[in-house]
Design a protein around this nucleic acid. Structure first.
Length: 111
DNA sequence: TTTCTAACA
DNA sequence: TGTTAGTA
């Protein structure tokens, strides 16, 4: 029913391109807007910015914010969270390359 | 909406 | 140290 993607919907659902206001993002994660700014200041995430300087959080950023709160609740500080997020990000990229390399090496039964 | 400062746990 | 509150 809502599968009408043949309309004039040029922009596809890009999880990293969605735009949420800081108030919406803060509400989604269950925190205040000031906290989101503190996280950005700590380098935990970098939301996109509009021409007016308004922060635009994407669904991917919101998911990361939830991971941030998860790590904070685990006892980590902003510096520790930044470190974990950075490592996880690199790990995801490395795993993707590894999976691609393995698939290219053995697409079917190996020799 | 943004930024800053102040105070609290 | 991190969060909340109020303000311009």
């Amino acid at each position: 029913m809502t599968d009408d993607r043949t309309d004039d919907r040029t922009d596809d659902a890009d999880p990293a391109r969605g735009v949420f206001g800081i108030s919406v993002a803060s509400d989604l994660v269950g925190t205040g807007v000031q906290n989101l700014r503190a996280y950005e200041r700590a380098g935990l995430l970098t939301p996109d910015r509009t021409s007016g300087g308004t922060r635009l959080y994407s669904p991917d950023d919101v998911a990361r914010l939830r991971r941030i709160q998860r790590l904070l609740a685990d006892g980590l500080n902003l510096a520790g969270v930044a470190r974990v997020l950075d490592l996880e990000d690199d790990n995801t990229d490395l795993r993707e390359q590894l999976d691609r390399a393995l698939d290219a090496q053995a697409p079917t039964s190996s020799s």
